[in-house]
Amino acid sequence: MSTASAHHPKLQHHFVSMDQQFDASKLGMWLFLITEILLFSGMFVAYTVYRVWHPEVFEALSGALDWRLGGVNTLVLLASSFTVAASIHHIQNDNRKGLVRNVILTIIFAGVFMFIKYLEYSGKFSHGVFPGEAYAPFGDHYGHYADVPYAPQFFSIYFVMTGIHGVHVLVGMGIFAWLAFRGARGDFSSEYYTPVELSGLYWHLVDIIWIFLFPLLYLI
């Protein structure tokens, strides 16, 4: 594919200008985010339906989740959203070091989030709290939920929603690792930072979904 030499090297041949290319990518990303919202909304509907049918079960069982761990994770994700925004700000000012530093910070925050998630999951698995048919809780903290009807549904919904959210966090970590590599290589500048901007949009969405998940599952 030939590229007109007068153009920016990142301009693909089928676009007329960098602006058109950037606008197209951004619109595409927004559409993709809409599909992500709809994917999660399916699970939010399942949550709502079961909550409406069995409100007392959901109220009781939200107590089985540790709101302190969830709260710390919320703060961690908010901090990571801030570092993502900062990385975009830096690259807009051609500060490549600032970009790479903030992207790496984002990866670290995401890692902390996943580590805390790991603690939560393993704490439940070690007490027999599994999604679905394998649900057989025992021990001090979970044992008394063993015979609560629809408790398996609550934990299934919890695991499915946070699990799919967790997969999104892992994907985000991969994307940011790639951004850090490309940023350090000097691929980005104030003229071309589309991947940084789009990854930022994605990350904010992952963050926002958690902002909804946390109160719905842990608090109410």
């Binding site: 399942a46 679905g132 394998a134 398996p152 919904i157």
Partner: peptide
């Protein structure tokens, strides 16, 4: 539902 039996 098929693999884990999540009961939805």
């Amino acid at each position: 539902e098929k693999t884990l039996g999540i009961g939805i």
